[in-house]
């Protein structure tokens, strides 16, 4: 019996899943990257990169799981229960690292050979038809970049082929073809993905956006981090004295007591003056 999963091309299957999962996870990773950037942490190096990669793992697992379930059901009529995302993700990660490692050397070697060949070719062409320097460099770039890209694509296809083969095995091993009509199941899935209560979805969506916006503005530096060389540097804040509330209170109490004493004295003096007999001439 030919299982519906076996009739699909492995490459197409792996590509469809990876592509959809990539774009599903992308906005979430961008949010992380933007918050890091606002906090002056580069997401492409050091701690920023580690944070971004670490957060990307659960995002990718979730995205891969979501797209895989949908794809299995819609295109293959297979329903998989259990943790789909993690089951596929680790296989993809292992294959990805292995393919990338080999591809790195192969692509590098191709680029080196092609660069030499194009340089020689263009030198020859230039003797016959002179080409402006900048255009010459661009054409040269194109001439070695194209074959190099082709080699890179071949490795991508190999990686996808392997991943697709694993995905198929996974789907067949842990999924079940359902007797219920496919249309019915797809609709069920669709309903699950499009919430029944759009108002609730909109409200929670807005709440998350507001929260993220507030976080963004709190993190964002108020003044530019790239000052113009001619523009005077910002006034360095004079060393501020630390405020100690108790001392401040004591001080206020003391001065109040002092003021009270002075007032009392003045009142006494006034009273004395009033007691004095009214002088002549008045």
């Amino acid at each position: 019996m030919s299982h519906p999963a076996t009739t699909i091309s492995s490459v197409k299957l792996a590509w469809a899943l990876s592509w959809a999962a990539f774009w599903t996870g992308f906005p979430f990773k961008m949010i992380v990257a933007l918050l890091l950037l606002a906090a002056q942490i580069h997401p492409w190096e050091g701690a920023g990169l580690i944070a971004l990669l670490a957060l990307s793992v659960p995002i990718d697992i979730w995205a891969l799981g979501l797209t895989a379930r949908t794809f299995f059901l819609e295109r293959m009529g297979i329903e998989v229960r259990g943790p789909v995302g993690i089951g596929l993700w680790w296989q993809g990660a292992v294959l990805g690292v292995a393919t990338l490692g080999v591809a790195y050397y192969a692509v590098g070697a191709t680029a080196a050979v092609c660069q030499k060949a194009t340089a020689a070719t263009l030198e020859l062409v230039n003797k016959i038809i002179p080409i402006p320097v900048a255009e010459q460099i661009t054409i040269e770039l194109l001439m070695w970049a194209v074959p190099t890209t082709i080699v890179a694509i071949i490795f991508l296809l190999i990686g996808l082929k392997l991943f697709g083969w694993r995905i198929k095995r996974f789907a067949v091993a842990s999924g079940q073809t359902s007797s219920a009509g496919l249309q019915e199941r797809v609709r069920e899935w669709d309903d699950w993905r499009v919430p029944a209560d759009p108002i609730l979805m909109l409200v929670s969506f807005t709440a998350v956006v507001v929260l993220l916006t507030v976080a963004f503005w709190v993190l964002l530096p108020v003044t530019t981090t790239h000052r113009h060389p001619d523009y005077p540097p910002p006034p360095t804040d004079a060393v501020k004295k630390k405020v100690k509330p108790e001392e401040l209170l004591k001080k206020t109490d003391a001065s109040l007591a002092k003021a009270e004493a002075v007032l009392e004295m003045l009142e006494k003096e006034k009273a004395k003056e009033k007691k004095k007999p009214v002088g002549p001439g008045k």
């Binding site: 906005p27 961008m30 949010i31 530019t224 790239h226």
Partner: peptide, 17 residues
């Protein structure tokens, strides 16, 4: 959202000088 995040990131990485 993706476009907004991309523009904001570029503004943070390469602000106008």
């Amino acid at each position: 959202a993706a476009v907004f995040l991309t523009i904001s990131s570029l503004a943070l990485i390469e602000p106008v000088v």
